[in-house]
Measured scan of single mutants.
Amino acid sequence: LTVHVGNVTYHFDNPEQAEEWAKRMAKKYQGQIHVKDGQFRIE
């Protein structure tokens, strides 16, 4: 699973971990989480 934050990409084996990280990053950067094809993108 991949989480994109700006132009930085993080890889996770565990979906719960990826989702948790995406939520934390979205809160930190006050962005929206977009989920597409098993990838999380924070914008």
Rank of each mutant, 00 (worst) to 15 (best):
R24Q: 13
G31T: 09
V5P: 00
P15K: 13
A18W: 04
Y10F: 11
W21E: 02
G31R: 03
A26C: 15
L1T: 14
E20N: 08
R41P: 09
Y29R: 02
Q39A: 12
Q39G: 14
F12K: 00
N7Y: 09
Q32V: 14
E20G: 03
G38D: 07
D37V: 00
I42E: 07
F40A: 08
E16A: 11
A18K: 02
L1R: 12
N14K: 09
A22L: 08
Q17Y: 09
F40M: 14
T9G: 02
G31N: 04
E16T: 11
M25A: 03
D13P: 07
R24G: 06
H4W: 12
T9D: 07
K36Q: 13
E43H: 08
E19S: 05
Y10P: 01
E16P: 01
W21F: 15
G38E: 05
A22G: 03
N7A: 09
L1M: 13
V3M: 02
V8K: 12
H4F: 08
H11E: 08
V5D: 02
Q17V: 11
N7T: 10
F12R: 00
R24F: 12
T2R: 09
K27I: 12
R41T: 15
P15C: 12
F40P: 08
W21Q: 01
K28V: 08
T2V: 12
T2M: 09
Q32N: 06
A26L: 06
E19C: 15
K28L: 14
I33Q: 02
E16L: 12
Q17R: 10
F12E: 00
A18R: 02
E16V: 12
Q39C: 15
G38T: 01
I33F: 06
K27W: 04
D37W: 00
R41E: 14
A22K: 01
H34T: 14
F12W: 01
G6P: 00
G38K: 02
F12D: 00
R41D: 11
F12N: 00
K27N: 07
K27C: 15
I33W: 04
P15E: 10
Q39V: 06
E19N: 06
K36I: 15
K27M: 09
Q30H: 15
A18M: 06
W21Y: 08
P15Q: 11
W21M: 05
Q32W: 02
G31D: 04
V35S: 05
E20S: 08
E19F: 15
V8Q: 11
Q32E: 12
Q32R: 08
K36E: 14
K28M: 10
L1S: 14
V35Q: 05
E20F: 06
K28T: 04
R41Y: 15
I42H: 06
V3Y: 01
H4L: 13
E16K: 13
Q17A: 14
D37E: 06
E16H: 13
Y29G: 03
A22N: 01
V3I: 05
T9N: 03
Y10R: 08
M25N: 02
K27E: 13
N7H: 11
P15G: 05
L1C: 15
P15V: 12
G38W: 02
E19T: 06
A18D: 01
Q39F: 04
V5A: 06
V5L: 10
V5Q: 01
R41M: 14
M25V: 08
A26Q: 05
E19P: 03
Y29S: 03
A26H: 04
N14I: 07
Q32A: 10
K36M: 12
E16N: 10
V35H: 04
K27S: 07
L1Y: 15
F12T: 00
G31V: 13
V5K: 01
F40L: 15
E19W: 15
K36N: 07
Q39I: 07
R41L: 15
R24N: 06
D13K: 09
R24M: 13
D13S: 10
E16R: 10
H34Y: 11
E20D: 12
P15H: 12
W21G: 00
N14H: 09
V3R: 01
K28W: 08
Q30F: 08
I33K: 01
K28F: 11
T2A: 09
H11V: 11
A18N: 00
A26Y: 04
H11F: 12
K27P: 04
V3G: 01
V35L: 09
K27L: 10
Y29C: 15
G38A: 02
V5H: 07
H34F: 13
Q17E: 14
Q30S: 10
D37Y: 00
V5F: 13
F40K: 10
Q39W: 07
Q30D: 11
T2H: 12
F40Q: 07
W21S: 01
H4N: 05
V35R: 04
G6W: 05
Y10N: 01
G31S: 09
W21I: 02
Q17N: 06
Q17F: 07
T2D: 06
K23L: 10
L1K: 09
I42P: 07
E43W: 06
R24K: 13
Q17G: 04
E19M: 14
D13G: 05
V8H: 13
K27Y: 05
E19Y: 15
K23T: 06
Q39H: 14
V8N: 08
D13Y: 05
G31W: 12
A18Q: 03
E20V: 03
G6M: 07
K28N: 03
G6L: 07
A22P: 00
H34Q: 12
A26N: 03
Q32Y: 07
Q17L: 13
Y29M: 08
L1N: 14
L1V: 14
Y10S: 01
Q39L: 01
E43Y: 08
K28R: 11
G6I: 04
E43M: 10
I33L: 11
D37P: 00
K36R: 08
D37K: 02
D13W: 06
R41S: 13
Q17D: 13
N14G: 04
E43S: 08
N14P: 00
P15R: 14
W21V: 02
K36V: 15
Q32F: 06
D37N: 07
E43F: 09
V8A: 08
Q32S: 11
H11K: 10
R24V: 13
Q32T: 14
E43P: 05
K23W: 06
F12L: 00
L1H: 14
D13L: 07
M25L: 10
E19R: 08
K27G: 04
Y29I: 09
M25C: 04
W21C: 15
L1Q: 07
N7Q: 09
T9A: 12
T2S: 09
V3A: 01
H34L: 11
V5T: 01
F12S: 00
V5G: 01
Q30N: 14
G38I: 03
I33C: 14
K23H: 10
W21T: 01
Y29K: 02
E19L: 15
M25T: 03
Y29Q: 03
V35W: 13
A22S: 02
L1G: 13
W21A: 05
Q17C: 15
A22I: 09
N7K: 11
G6R: 05
E20M: 08
R24H: 11
R24S: 10
V5S: 01
Q32D: 08
K28E: 10
G6T: 01
N7I: 07
Q17I: 08
W21H: 03
F12M: 00
T2G: 02
T2P: 01
H4G: 04
A18T: 01
E16M: 11
A26I: 05
I33N: 02
V8Y: 12
K23N: 08
M25Y: 07
N14E: 06
K23V: 10
F40V: 14
Y10C: 14
R41C: 15
R41W: 15
E19K: 10
W21D: 00
Q30Y: 08
G6C: 15
Q30L: 08
E43C: 15
Y10D: 01
N14F: 08
N7C: 15
K28A: 06
R24T: 11
Q17H: 10
A18P: 00
T9P: 03
E20P: 00
Q32P: 04
H34D: 06
N7G: 11
I42A: 03
G38Y: 02
G31H: 11
K27F: 04
N7E: 09
K28Q: 07
A22F: 05
W21R: 00
T9R: 09
V35F: 15
K36D: 11
I42G: 07
K36S: 13
P15Y: 15
Q32L: 08
H11A: 05
V8L: 12
V3S: 01
K28P: 01
T9V: 14
I33V: 10
L1I: 13
H11P: 02
H11C: 15
N14Q: 06
K36A: 07
R41Q: 14
H11Y: 13
Y10W: 13
D13I: 06
V8E: 09
E19A: 09
K27Q: 11
M25R: 00
H11I: 08
F40Y: 12
T9C: 13
P15M: 13
K27A: 13
V35Y: 14
A22R: 03
R24L: 14
V35A: 04
P15F: 14
H11G: 02
A22H: 02
D13M: 09
L1W: 15
I42S: 06
K23S: 06
A26W: 04
H11L: 09
G38N: 07
T2F: 09
H4S: 12
V3Q: 00
